[in-house]
């Protein structure tokens, strides 16, 4: 699971575990890994959908894992970490994604999703099945869910 020191940043993936499954995101899309804490409620949005987290003085929106990854909410444990995602290196929206456990860095390229789902590719790393996620797709899906929720509430 360790990566050689000389491997380029864009060639590495951050692996984490959610609901017993192993997921991976390109390290270039991850700003930071923070410890999970209690989420604050976002006006007009239910807390079961999303909340905000104090991230170095800024409000970081955090989407629920089940919303982004199509999981059953009743089976999920409390998250231990929050991955701060920034799909676009030159600014843009940041999104927090809750993870049950941070696995580490592995060598590998990212992938872009061609479908509606956030999973871009299923890959076997060190004999384990890893779902490689598309960060932009995750942000877009979060935006869609928020808009849908706002529309539904209106």
């Amino acid at each position: 699971m360790s990566a050689p020191a000389a491997v380029a940043a864009e060639e590495r993936l951050l692996t984490f575990e959610v609901a017993g499954s192993l997921y991976a995101l390109p390290i270039a899309c991850v700003v930071e890994v923070a410890e999970a804490s209690a989420l604050a409620c976002i006006p007009m949005l239910p807390l079961e959908l999303a909340g905000v987290l104090n991230f170095h003085g800024d409000a970081l929106p955090v989407m629920r894992r089940e919303t982004l990854l199509d999981l059953d909410a009743q089976e999920l444990p409390e998250p231990s970490h929050v991955l701060v995602l920034a799909p676009r290196p030159n600014g843009g929206a940041k999104l927090g994604l809750c993870a049950d456990r941070i696995e580490g860095l592995v060598v590998g390229d990212g992938a872009r999703s061609v479908g509606a789902g956030p999973v871009a590719e299923r890959r076997s790393i060190d004999g384990r099945l890893v779902f490689v996620l598309d960060a932009e797709r995750l942000v877009a899906r979060a935006a869609e869910a928020i808009e849908a929720s706002l529309e539904w509430s209106e």
Binding site: A5, A28, V30, V33, E35, I102, L105
Partner: peptide, 26 residues
């Protein structure tokens, strides 16, 4: 570990300039 991970992430985001830092972080 989390700090080293974040340092690795930061070093990766720094590109070639963060390569040495990435080694230390690793």
């Amino acid at each position: 570990n989390l700090l080293s991970l974040n340092a690795s992430i930061e070093a990766a985001r720094a590109g070639e300039a963060g390569r040495g830092f990435a080694v230390v972080a690793e």
